[in-house]
Simulated assay, not measured.
Amino acid sequence: MKGKSYEAGLKGELMDGRMNATFSVFNVERTGTAVLDERYAENYSLWGASCCYLPQGKVSSRGFDVEVGGEVSSGWQLAAGYTFNQTRDKTEGTVFSSITPKHLFKLSTVYTLPGALSKWRVGGSGRIQSTQYVSGSVTNSSGESQPYKFTQDGYATWDLMLQYRFDPTWTLSPEPEQCL
């Protein structure tokens, strides 16, 4: 595969330098992506896949990314970001990577408790992404082509964080599954 990647963006400060913001657009073009050689029958088995591929595909990935993060107020940090990514198989005129989320939103925050509790930090984060799917067809033992499509609906994951600072170099945070 060979490819070219172009990205342009802006970075800046907000709130007297306490917050940073970035915005970028990207375009990735690649050629030589493996495509199934149609001269050979598709043969999917338990231990293998079709035998032969050719380096002919043309794939593009285009989108933008925006992120904002920093200290919103004393002891409170916040970061948020959104990515839009659209991948296309330019050879076939279809979606190329249906397992790459088209929409991705990330949010995280951490707060250092005030006063006598300042050795404690609490926080959380979330990641929300759009639907993903895999589709195609497979040839069954009778030689018939059977289409398939597996879909993973959009979903969110959430994390919580608790941290205690013993001194400037040592902190303790329980493992996520222990925070239940």
Rank of each mutant, 00 (worst) to 15 (best):
1 M>W: 09
1 M>I: 09
2 K>N: 10
3 G>Y: 13
11 K>V: 12
13 E>C: 01
13 E>P: 04
13 E>D: 14
16 D>S: 15
18 R>D: 13
18 R>V: 03
21 A>L: 11
21 A>G: 13
22 T>A: 14
26 F>R: 10
27 N>Y: 15
30 R>A: 00
31 T>P: 00
35 V>G: 00
41 A>T: 13
42 E>R: 09
43 N>F: 05
44 Y>C: 01
48 G>M: 10
49 A>N: 15
50 S>R: 09
53 Y>D: 08
54 L>G: 00
55 P>T: 02
63 G>S: 11
64 F>E: 03
65 D>E: 15
65 D>F: 10
66 V>K: 01
67 E>N: 13
71 E>N: 06
76 W>F: 15
76 W>G: 01
77 Q>Y: 08
85 N>M: 10
86 Q>Y: 08
87 T>D: 04
89 D>Y: 07
89 D>N: 15
91 T>A: 02
93 G>M: 12
95 V>I: 12
97 S>K: 03
102 K>H: 05
103 H>A: 05
105 F>E: 03
108 S>P: 02
110 V>H: 06
111 Y>H: 05
113 L>F: 09
114 P>H: 07
115 G>S: 04
116 A>K: 09
117 L>R: 06
118 S>K: 08
119 K>I: 07
121 R>D: 06
123 G>D: 07
126 G>V: 05
128 I>S: 07
130 S>C: 03
132 Q>A: 11
135 S>G: 02
138 V>W: 06
140 N>W: 07
141 S>A: 14
142 S>M: 11
145 S>W: 03
148 Y>F: 15
151 T>C: 12
152 Q>G: 07
155 Y>P: 00
160 L>Q: 08
160 L>V: 14
161 M>P: 03
163 Q>T: 14
163 Q>P: 00
166 F>E: 08
166 F>R: 01
168 P>Q: 12
168 P>M: 09
170 W>I: 11
175 E>R: 15
